[in-house]
Design a protein around this nucleic acid. Structure first.
Length: 262
DNA sequence: ATGGCTTTAAAATAAAGA
């Protein structure tokens, strides 16, 4: 079972590239972020045509997340995080697919800092951790996939000094991320690449792709019931170099079949 | 230090991203 996460940076501008990627790589589940459209603008019929069911949580212009599943419609289990009723950003969507609980996460960027956006990021991470604890208690395989907007380690960025003052690399951001790992969640890509050097994002403005100046901010966090089934991980790097590409590229994991219970 | 570039929304600029 292949589960991918992909910040597509606008589903309208990206639709041809997105359909192409789905047809080429055939993920069983695709968690999308930054769809940047209201619910009524989501092109569900286009995904249906190539065999994918979908649920989505849209927002005008910004944010917005979705979950696609090959051959079925994800069974929605949660929309938005608890703890801040006035928060109207569409950044969290969660569903069951084939017995696996899967969340599509678009964590706040947090820049500039200090300021309200950074404070919001840290509060959001606290709320995410609280939801993760609820999922943990369910004792089912769970995968929290998305754009975390956190560079977890110095070897997850082309040049740590270049991002040192950025919200993605602040000690508070890293600490909040690490607390989830401390709770027992596995950073699938990071654990397979302890020496780093794997990027999922390359900046448009600084011509990051041309220089391979990227960093790793798209993550899949697995609870032990999912991590025990982890067979493979990957990043579809080549798709970042295509015409009209997102500034992110897909990251994915593969889970094997559940062990037979005695 | 700022801007570089890209997208959305909407009609020229502005906001947001990271």
């Amino acid at each position: 079972m292949r589960i991918a996460t992909y910040n597509i940076n606008g589903i309208k501008a990206r639709l041809p590239r997105l359909l192409e990627w789905l047809e080429e790589t055939q993920p069983d589940v695709a968690c999308l972020q930054e769809i940047k459209t209201m619910d009524e603008g989501f092109p569900a019929a286009e995904f249906e045509k190539i065999g994918y069911g979908a649920i989505w949580h849209g927002q005008k212009s910004f944010n917005g997340v979705a979950i696609l599943a090959k051959g079925s419609t994800p069974q929605e289990t949660k929309r938005g995080l608890d703890g801040e009723p006035e928060d109207d950003h569409s950044r969290y969507l969660e569903a069951d697919v084939n017995g696996v609980r899967i969340a599509s996460i678009y964590l706040p960027n947090g820049n500039p800092l200090p300021g309200p956006k950074f404070d919001y990021k840290l509060r959001w991470m606290k709320r995410l951790r609280a939801r993760a604890a609820e999922l943990w208690a369910l004792e089912i395989p769970a995968v929290l996939a998305g754009d975390y907007n956190v560079i977890p380690r110095d070897n997850d960025v082309f040049l740590p000094a270049a991002m040192a003052s950025d919200a993605l690399m602040q000690p508070e951001s890293r600490d909040a991320y690490r607390r989830m790992l401390g709770d027992g969640w596995t950073d699938a890509i990071g654990s397979w690449h302890p020496d780093g050097g794997v990027w999922t994002y390359w900046d448009y403005r600084t011509k990051g792709w041309e220089r391979d100046a990227g960093f790793r901010i798209d993550h899949l966090l697995l609870n032990p019931l999912a991590a025990d089934r982890l067979n493979n991980v990957g990043v579809d790097k080549e798709h970042r170099g295509r015409e009209k590409a997102s500034d992110h590229t897909p990251a994915w994991i593969e889970l094997g079949v559940t062990d037979m219970q005695p």
